[in-house]
Structures are given as C-alpha cells and as structure tokens.
Design a protein around this nucleic acid. Structure first.
Lengths: 342, 342
DNA sequence: TTTAGCATTCGCTCCAGTTGACTGCTAAGA
DNA sequence: TCTTAGCAGTCAACTGGAGCGAATGCTAAA
C-alpha cells in the first residue's frame, strides 16, 4: 500500500471518528486537500475497499472504516504526536492533579483512577484491583466481638484493608497471643505464600499453637481472594447504545458490565502486562463485545483501561490508558517501596 | 364515582400494566365481561376521561391511564389479595430463603436486599444504609501502621464495619491505652452522641488524656457519616428506557441513579417511616423522575424501595416493598437486641 | 498515472391512498 | 334515567411511487 493510500485511510478513519458519518471523496478533498482530485481519491478508496479496510453502508454512500481498517489505523497510523499529549495531560489537566496518593486508601485511589479514565477518554473506564493474595501482609488484627465472634482485619502492603467476621471461640488472652504470633511470623510475606503454608499443614514450621490461627487466616483469604472491579462512565456508553440502530442485542454490553466476575475474568485473560492492548470488535473473545472496542493495560498489580464503540478516539484512549497505567503502577510501587523502607 | 366506573378504571389500569397498549372498550368487554355492552363502557370511559383519570394518545385510540388514574388505582383499587401474597412470597420463593442474617456483614445483607427487591419486583431495587452515626459503638480498634499512620476500625452494633487510615503519631503503648479507654467509656453509646461529646469539648467529663483520641474518633465520624446506597437491577430500567419513544431527556433517571448523594438525599426527604409511599410521575420533586414512579419505605434505620416506569405492577411493588421492609427492620432490630443481651 | 465528465445507484423524504381500530353520537328500547 | 345498537367520523399505521441528491464507477483523454 503506497503512502497516499495510507493517508487516505487515515483521513477516512479520523474523519469518521469525528463526525460519525460516511466519508465521501469530496469531503476528503475539501477538508484535507491531498493535492489530487476527488477521482484519484476515489480510485484509492476502491483499492482500500477491495482490501477490506473500508466499506460502504450502501451503494452510493461514502466510506466507513471496517474493523480491519480500525486495526490498521491503530497498528500503523496512530498519531504519535497524540502520545506526546500524555505529558501535556499531566501538566494541563487539573483533573490529574487531584490524583495524588493518600496512602492506605487504595479503594478510593482505584475508584478515582477509573473515574479519571472515563472522564478523559469519554469511554467507560475500568480498573481491576490487585488480588489480595498477590500482595504482602502488613498487619493482621484480631478483635473479639461478643463471646463467639471475631473481627479479622487484614492490611496488605498496597493498602488494601479487608475486614471479615468469623465464628470462633477464643479468650481475649489467646487472641492477643495468636495475633502477636501471626504478625511476627507472617509480616512482609506474600499472602499467596501464606496461603500455601496454610494448605501444606504437614511442613515442620507450623507449631501446633499456630494451626488454629492459620486456619482463620486461610478462611479469610479464601473468601477475599477475588478482585474488585471499579467501573465509571457507563452513562457515556448508554449514549452510544441509544444512538445505535437496532442491532439486536444492544444491552449485551451493559449486562456484561453488570456481571463483575465475568468481566474481570475477561480482563485478566486479555490484558498484557505493561503494554496497551486494543481489541477491536470481533477480536474480542466475548460475543457481547461485538461492535465494541476494549483497551486494556496491565499496570503490574491489576488491569485498567476503557471500553467504547468501534468509532472511538483511539489516539486519545491509547495514550490516556498508557499514561494512567504507568502512573498508577508508579504510585503503587512507590507505596510498596515505602513499606520496605520501614 | 359509582362502582362500575371504578371497576372500569381498575380494569383499564390492570390491562394497560400488563399489555402496554391502549385499552379499548371492546377489549374490556371481551376480557373482563362486565355484563354491559361496549357502548356503556364507552360512556363510563368518557366520564373517566372528563375527570382526568384516563386519556387517549390520539382521537380514535383506546385509553391509557393518566398519572391521576394511577394515583386513584394505588389509593383505592390496589388488590388486597395481592398483599396476601406477602406471606406466600416468604414461603414459596426460595429467593427469600437465602435471606438470612450473617451477623456483622451488614454490607452483604443490604446488597442482597436490594437484589431481592429488584428481582421480585422487576424494578430497580435500592437500599439506603443506616447512618453510621445513628447506630451504637460496639468496638473501636486502633492499630499502628508504620511510624506515622494509624488504622482505625469502628464496629457498630448493627454490624457496620468501617476502617480508616489516619495520620497520627502514638507509641504502641499509648495506643493500647487510648483504645482501652475509648472502648470502656464509649461502648454502647450512640455514635451521634459521641460526636456531640467530641464537639462539646468544654464539658467536664473529658479528661485531657482522652482529648486527642476523641479527636481521632471525631475525624472518622466526620468522614464516614454519609450513607451508602445499594442499587440493583438497573438493567430492567434500561429496557424501559430503550422501549420509550424519544421524550427528550431519557437518560435523566440513569444520571440521577449514578449520583449517589443526590438520590440518597431525595430518598431521605421523601420516605416515611414504616410506611410504603408511592410517588407517581410528577408527584416526584425531582424533574428527572417525571415519567417514573418511585416506591419507598423507611425500615427504621434507612430507606428501601423500587423505581420503575409509570406503567409498573403497583400491587406487586407495593406488597414486596412492605414485606421486605418489615423483614429487614426485624432482622436489624433483632441484631440490636442480641447486642444488648450480651 | 491522473483527471474530467457523465451515467448510475440507492437511501431518504414526501405524499396520497388504503386499512382498520376505536370513539362519539344519536335514537330507540328497557 | 340508564342501556344498547348502529353508524359516521377520526386518525395512526402501512404501502407504494415519485423526486431528490449525495456518492460512486467507469471511460476516455491528458
């Protein structure tokens, strides 16, 4: 494909993303002025159509990018100058300024991150939290509540705080002892490892006195191993859904987003660590996502990104996801380092 | 209005709720057979229309209930036999069986309640949590996290567990002392009162040693005094939204539901304690709720209910809200009693 | 390889005609 | 006075055809 044809494709995609209407050869001529006539552009368009990058909604209409066209656009034609906006984003948008890290309030941080993604990109923004079991234990507190119940509070080094109520019978003295033991022994260990210890009861290091308390911890871990999902900006998605013509299952996406587990599962499978990945339309493994695009990035502990219609601003979405992802990783890893310093 | 006219109105409303289509005199004749001719029904309809209970979408169409019609229906024509279903609901639907009370997991309980409401009524179900400050303190735990931070965990008698991280400098020994003091002094007191104590620093009962720790508690209370809102079943609302013709601001409701504070505020203002209240269309103070109906009930600690289109099954919604509301109140007050027993 | 010009295609809009479902009204009957 | 049968009137929804206009495809010449 020669240079001009790539340019024509790029202009068609850009224009269509802006206006949402099929792009004609004349529009291209008038708005971008390639220095050739509309007939020439038409010839190029015919080529692009033969190759499957663009299509006509009907015979005498302008052209619209196909999924293959978007894919080519994302792979080869993304404006690198937009990526430079990353930096400007940071400086200009006060939005990001509020985005500092109040330690230990991970929930709030992640929610804000999702909110930020949604607001900057205009898409649905999502953040999948770190798995509790993949962080390290910083503190465990056991408090009696009445005679038969026990409040367990787990704090991990990233600032996840989890509380659980368990049925258990201990005297306060026993509890204090167990609590001290647990903290002494397990502090700084990855929760995953602790869980394994718990499962491999046979190993010599477990003293009988610890066994019960480990059982408690194991129970908490088992209950709380799932990841949380923060989603913001569904409203913008709804607007896209309402715009669209009746293509059958319009609510599928919304249903998917309501099903936390399924969507979280999808994200974990799809995302790549430290790298922005764009899935366009049918490239998505889930049938509900036909007709939608998903952008993901693994930020080291979990996954974040955006979801929106095929006709989205890929440049902005890509660069924002990359920027926010890197930023979140930095914040979390500095929190971690801080911890190690102590 | 004579008996037959009321019956005609009731049948029109019932029929329209079922089918969603304007109800004609012939339909009424064929389906409910009042023992009079369609001409007579038409005469009654004309009366009902003059009085503003029903209306025609256009000249030669069947009749549709107006908001005034729905109001009359809810006030006078609600089928009391449907209220008897309350009991059956409890027995038959396994749904409700899972609805037991795992103490201390208030969050989960309330979320399930919202889910239950949504599933049984087919509307959006919501539950506004009790205010933290209106419950009693059961337990407060202070744990140091590193040299400068402090994890505060508050447990209230209803099972609300709140954790907060504060910046503060204490030695572990000081913390233990403060914690013990706080628990001894404040346990069983309403959080609201505690807060007032904190504000009225002058009062003699505060020993200087306690002042700092009270300041901490005060800070937590100030941050966490807002109520949580659990909403389930937005999907069903979306379906209603998609069905509807373009009446301008179709997304208003969704926007409102996304704005937790505003909606919570609305609920607090509107709900009545221990009583089911139905607000139909323009009876709602909020402009976004034109065209929607809201059912609320104060369950003693907070508010719960449902939201849906004007054309909803008021009988089912009413009885379900009443039943679930009473049930939740019973569960929570028994939790409270249990506490006192200890 | 590019361009100008022209025929062609086809969605969109408007309009007129038809159909069918209701209502409103009136006059007769109970 | 209330009820009923019958009939005329009304209007949304559907149908098909005409005209319009925005684009394209093609061809022949530059």
């Amino acid at each position: 494909m020669d240079q001009r044809k790539r340019l024509v494709l790029k202009q068609i995609v850009s224009r269509y993303i802006k206006s949402g209407e099929p792009v004609s050869s004349r529009t291209l001529l008038e708005e971008y002025g390639l220095g050739v006539s509309s007939a020439t552009i038409r010839n190029d368009m015919r080529y692009l159509e033969e190759q499957g990058y663009i299509a006509k909604p009907y015979c005498s209409a302008g052209r619209v990018p196909t999924e293959k066209g978007y894919r080519f656009f994302v792979d080869w034609l993304l404006d690198l100058s937009d990526l430079a906006k990353e930096a400007r984003l940071h400086d200009q948008h006060a939005l990001i300024e509020y985005y500092r890290f109040p330690r230990q309030e991970l929930e709030r941080l992640l929610r804000k991150t999702a909110f930020l993604l949604a607001n900057v990109t205009g898409l649905v923004g999502f953040v999948l939290s770190p798995r509790l079991e993949e962080t390290e234990l910083e503190q465990i507190t056991l408090t009696p509540l009445g005679p038969r119940q026990l409040l367990v509070v787990l704090v991990s080094n990233l600032g996840l705080v989890e509380s659980q109520v368990l049925e258990a019978q201990f005297t306060p003295a026993e509890l204090a002892e167990i609590s001290a033991l647990l903290n002494e022994r397990l502090r700084g260990k990855p929760l995953k490892e602790i869980r394994q210890f718990f499962e491999l009861e046979e190993e010599g290091w477990i003293e009988p006195a610890l066994r019960n308390s480990l059982a408690i911890l194991g129970e908490v871990l088992a209950r709380e191993s799932r990841q949380r999902l923060y989603i913001e900006g569904i409203l913008s998605l709804l607007e896209s859904v309402l715009e669209g013509r009746d293509q059958g299952d319009r609510l599928g996406v919304i249903k998917l987003l309501s099903d936390e587990r399924r969507f979280a599962q999808f994200l974990s499978e799809v995302a790549r660590e430290g790298e922005v990945r764009v899935l366009i339309g049918r490239e998505n493994p889930l049938p509900e996502l036909q007709g939608w695009s998903v952008i993901t990035m693994g930020y080291g502990y979990g996954v974040l990104g955006g979801l929106g219609p095929l006709r989205m601003d890929y440049s902005k979405a890509f660069s924002t996801t990359l920027y926010v992802g890197n930023r979140l990783r930095a914040i979390l890893s500095s929190a971690e380092r801080k911890e190690v310093d102590n």
